[in-house]
Design a protein around this nucleic acid. Sequence first.
DNA 1: CCCCAGGTGAATA
DNA 2: TATTCACATGGG
Length: 280
Amino acid sequence: MTTITLRPDEPLDLNRTLGCGQAFRWEAADGWWQGVVGDHAIRIRQDGDLLTFYGADAPFVRDYFRLDQNLPEVLASIDRDPVIHDAIRCCYGLRLVRQQPWECLISYICATNTNIPAVKRRVSSMAERYGEAIESPFGTAYTFPRPAVLAGVCHADLWDCKLGYRTDYVCDAAAFAVEHSGWAERLASLPFEEARYELMRLRGVGPKAADCVLLFAFGFFEAFPVDVWIRRIMAEAYMPELTGKNCTPAEYDRIRRFAREYFGEYAGYAQEYLYCVREG
DNA sequence: CCCCAGGTGAATA
DNA sequence: TATTCACATGGG
């Protein structure tokens, strides 16, 4: 058991952070959050300014939750109007966790035209079947399967993980990651727009999935993923000229560029706060 | 039976 | 370039 006492200037709302849908491998169970990060099976809870956890050391947890990122400063920089102000007040302490690029990429390929519970089922199904077992005092957990392992799984077996028509895309991505083993490092070294363009060359990765991966795994905080919810919120609060309900590529670009300009270099945080506050 | 969900690719005009 | 459609799956 390890603890971290949060300083007043490093706020964290663990429940919002793990429950908002940014990462798909956390489950709430009897007062604790259980999840897998890399090869760590972690059990964690928050009581006020006290974080208590098993399965990882304090530096690992600080890094995952980006506790060294100055959240009050970040939020002050995006706090431009009453709408985002209310979201910040409501979800204060929500942080963007540092996800692993490979798992994040596959997760968001699996997140198209579906809902969060279904994505979680798909990811955990792949992990249970093809990941490595982690024995912990709280049971057996499974790592997310490495690219080489997933690349070796036949189409029919991946289909059984309920990926549906996304199965082809996951197969392709696995082959890509095996062939370009340094893809994540290379992407991280590129400017945002170039990294985005490179990601979108993968089948099954459009603007939305690319922006999610860049925001959640690569720390490009200017990324502003536009899903059906965010489009709705942006149309209501900021861009009343938007009509209809489907988001064309041109319209997607208009929204994300407006947000990048309006909220600044941490537009991605604004996105996540607006997304999270939709359910109160 | 319908519509919707953290969309995307392919065909078409 | 812009529109339209199919797509597996599960829930309401």
